[in-house]
Design a protein around this nucleic acid. Structure first.
Ligand code: FES
Ligand code: FES
Lengths: 141, 141
DNA sequence: AGATACTTGACTATTTTAGTCAGGTTTATA
DNA sequence: TATAAACCTGACTAAAATAGTCAAGTATCT
């Protein structure tokens, strides 16, 4: 199992934004340069973040993006949800009555993967953007 | 992030094997039928499990596979390790001094992903094959 | 007017996954 | 000892997912 770039970049970009989010909006160009992420790719990512109201956009010269909530209220789970970085451990469909490989009952490992999924999601629910910014500032002292 | 079929199948197959691992070796054909996993694919998986000494093979007619250790001593982490289902959250190479996107220092999220990786691996270190078999038997009563 | 920066949607190369396929070798047992 | 069951190995491949790029806009500040 691995984390995709989209998810990783979304968090990198938001940590960057949160750190420079004082008065003025932060342009994607700046984030792109600081974090080494393609501008075009960032645009895709921020489009999704905006639709889920995690950031707000400011158009025109001197424009950019601003956080739409307090950093404390933005959890990792919200970010991942916005960019479709979902944790998927089971093979069977959630709603379907059928288990793995067409069995009428859930497969022998179904519950294990459900536990795993919860275990991972708990981590994402606890961590906020504020935590990440703080961690980063401490390490820099 | 998602779990791959290889990892999922490896665990399904081992749980199956552990449950029927009384006296005689269990053939892949039986596992294939019971779990609905392609025989050819199972062979790939068991080849790896054998190399890591998680199972032992018995060749010839009436052959099959047997657990090479007690179910209690086989942890999920051993299984995943054997079939190369690794948890990879960071983008940077482990040994390289360079961080994400060629930075000389680790990127702003590196520590977060390290924490996440540990969080997930802890889950895998705790769960043993025995736990899984028991869970399954209880649910069947 | 011109530059900056957001907006959108389509397109594509690469990589990974999830297998299949073909051709073995070993061994119990009838 | 023939035969069938079952392990063993490596190469191959279709499909999906990923990680972007590219093009053509629109809005707004100076
Ligand atoms: S993972 Fe849900 S039935 Fe197998
Ligand atoms: S994940 Fe290690 S430097 Fe970015």
């Amino acid at each position: 199992m691995k984390l995709t770039s989209k998810g990783r970049y979304a968090v990198m970009a938001l940590v960057d934004l949160a750190r420079f989010n004082n008065i003025n909006p932060v342009s994607l160009r700046d984030i792109s340069l600081r974090q080494g992420i393609s501008l075009d790719y960032l645009e895709q990512i921020f489009s999704k973040l905006r639709k889920k109201e995690i950031v707000q956009s400011v158009r025109g010269t001197q424009g950019g993006y601003v956080l739409n909530k307090k950093a404390k209220e933005i959890k990792l789970t919200n970010i991942f949800d916005a960019v479709d970085e979902k944790v998927k451990t089971v093979q069977c469909k959630k709603d379907s009555k059928k288990g793995c490989n067409g069995k009428t009952t859930k497969c022998v490992t179904h519950n294990l993967w459900d536990e795993l999924e919860n275990h991972i999601n708990n981590f994402f629910k606890e961590k906020s953007l504020e935590d990440l910014v703080k961690d980063n500032q401490e390490r820099r002292i």
